[in-house]
């Protein structure tokens, strides 16, 4: 069941980004672990889709963490404390701790940003951007691209199936694969360009390029208090970052 939304999407996204910034500023594995356990896990659990989001975090961050562990765990020439010598590869304490710290950082990165993005109400975010006076062209490109992604993926699947029905066989060689990709890509791009030309005419007919203020059909869910909170969060993180990096806590 989807969770009840309390904050504006812009506030939630900014909070997630600032948390990532804090993890980079503090740069200690204890803090990263604390964010992972105290913020990320509860956020995923109350997201309304814990299984789906947890799986996405694992799928996105898992391979990167594993490959980092293999790379730095086995090949870290700066390492001095050798735990296991395998000839060209050496397992060192320094390499393992570097891989673990990087893995933790990547886990936090995915764990903080993915739940925020996956529970995002995109129409509400775009409406807020319009109400706050963001560049209309940026709002159009972002909104249109997010809407197009599933459409393009579906059309690509349909074209692939059609070409396979007409005898497209993907061989093992790179030439065969590139040829198969071209057989899908060319009709896909032609169709999308025809759509884009039509959209161009429709937008011009609705005076898209004029400079007047845009109207959003969705109500403004952003409040004065949330705008104040966003500014306060940015200032607080900025002040803390400077104090941490310049002051006695500097790494």
């Amino acid at each position: 069941m989807p969770r009840r939304r309390i904050y504006n999407p812009l506030t939630e996204l900014l909070a997630a980004v600032l948390l990532v910034v804090l993890v980079l500023v503090v740069n200690r594995w204890e803090f990263s672990l604390a964010v992972l356990v105290l913020v990320v896990v509860p956020a995923v659990l109350v997201s309304g889709r814990p299984r789906q989001i947890g799986l996405a975090v694992l799928l996105v961050a898992g391979p990167l963490v594993l490959s980092s562990l293999l790379l730095h765990g086995l090949f870290y020439p700066e390492g001095r404390t050798v735990l296991l010598d395998l000839g060209i590869a050496r397992v060192t304490t320094e390499g393992l701790s570097f891989a673990a710290a990087m893995g933790l950082r990547m886990g936090v990165f995915a764990g903080v940003l993915l739940p925020a993005a996956m529970t995002l109400d995109i129409p509400e975010l775009l409406a807020t951007m319009t109400h706050r006076g963001w560049n209309r062209k940026l709002v159009f490109v972002v909104g249109s691209a997010i809407g197009l992604i599933p459409h393009v993926a579906m059309r690509a699947r349909q074209i692939t199936r059609s070409q396979q029905a007409r005898g497209l066989v993907v061989g093992r060689g790179p030439v065969s694969r590139v040829r198969a990709l071209l057989a899908v890509l060319t009709p896909l791009v032609i169709g999308l360009l025809v759509d884009a030309a039509e959209r161009n005419s429709m937008l011009e007919a609705r005076s898209f390029s004029s400079g007047v203020t845009r109207t959003s059909y969705l109500p403004d869910t952003d409040t004065v208090r949330q705008r104040g909170v966003r500014r306060a969060m940015v200032v607080a993180v900025g002040v803390f970052s400077v104090a941490w990096l310049v002051g006695p806590g500097a790494a």
Binding site: S144, A145, V152, A156, A180, L185
Partner: peptide, 23 residues
């Protein structure tokens, strides 16, 4: 501008197609 969302969607979607074709 109207062709930019197309490019963005292609960047993401073709990655998936490339994956299904085993590239």
């Amino acid at each position: 501008l109207v062709v930019m969302p197309l490019g963005i969607a292609l960047n993401i979607a073709i990655g998936q197609v490339a994956g299904t074709l085993g590239l």
